[in-house]
Amino acid sequence: MLYNKSAVYIGIVILVILLTSPFWVGLFGHNYTSTGITTPKDQATCIENADFMRAQHMRLLNEWRDKALRDETRTYVATDGKKWEISLQNTCMRCHTNYKSFCEKCHLSNSVSPYCWTCHIIPTEGK
């Protein structure tokens, strides 16, 4: 026999709803099966290899920011020895021209809001 039946049932229902929320909240939006990202077609590799860029691009950009603005170093030597100019506008965005189909694709759906664009201008359209 259960004591305080109604309160216990309400409690159990609330608990189960809360605990299973990761499963049912997903049903409100849509499924997320691919990033839908478009990488530049005319380039074989980025500055470093793709795995590194996917995982560490934010760190790289942060280091670049510090190097360019605080140390006034404008050259980055990649692991393969190639030299790159440290510049978001002139290096990154030369290939990754479209903000909407590149940066925003992952950032928006993973709720990442980098503060690149508090200083830089968001590229609205590809060249």
Binding site: G26, H30, Y32, S109, S111, S113
Partner: peptide, 19 residues
Amino acid sequence: RHFRFFMEPVPCCISFIEA
């Protein structure tokens, strides 16, 4: 904060918490 991995699109309240 982990609900950003459970929901698409991420609701603004989660983004607000992150901000």
